[in-house]
């Protein structure tokens, strides 16, 4: 139990850094960076927890990003700031970038070295995983405006 708590804390610590780093690339205002850090640490560590108890990565991503969507809703009503400012930077650590690049590189390799089952497997599996995780991520974030606000402005 203590071991798990330690792993969670470590995960949260390493997750806030990319959230803030990418928030700075998107030029999120300075006093909002702390929310991106909190969001990044919370989402990535709770996804780690869900995956630790055997939830598949797509569903775990969907659940935590839906929660992030509602948390972002609260923050955005409180500070009168559009939601993507907090939410997108917070889920950046969960973007399946490595899968996407592996799929693309395997695609380029098929062109140079010829078709092989191993390469095609890499393309399909990594490509599909990218697609599903990404859809889960965006759908989760959009959930509050799809279910509750339905076209009305949030702030």
């Amino acid at each position: 139990m203590i071991e798990l708590l330690y792993l969670l804390l470590e995960d949260a610590w390493f997750a806030w850094i990319p959230a803030v780093g990418f928030a700075m690339v998107f030029n999120v205002p300075r006093h909002m960076l702390i929310y991106c850090a909190i969001g990044g640490a919370l989402t990535h560590s709770s996804r780690f927890l869900l995956m630790h108890y055997g939830v598949p990565i797509e569903w775990a991503t969907f659940i935590v990003s839906a929660n992030m969507g509602f948390l972002g809703l609260y923050w955005s009503r409180k500070h009168l700031i559009p939601r993507p400012v907090f939410t997108v930077a917070s889920v950046i650590p969960m973007i399946p970038g490595s899968y996407a690049f592996t799929a693309m590189i395997a695609l380029v390799e098929i062109n140079t070295t010829g078709y092989s089952l191993g390469l095609m497997q890499l393309v399909t599996e990594n490509g599909l995983r990218t697609l599903f995780i990404l859809t889960a991520l965006s759908f989760g974030l959009a959930l509050p405006s799809i279910l509750i606000y339905r076209g009305r402005p949030i702030v």
Binding site: V25, F26, V88, I95, G97, S138, I146
Partner: peptide, 17 residues
């Protein structure tokens, strides 16, 4: 650092809406 994360998330949420 070169993952186009913001366009990808915007893309899916645009299509959803």
């Amino acid at each position: 650092l070169l993952v186009p994360g913001f366009p990808l998330i915007n893309s899916v949420s645009d299509m959803l809406k």
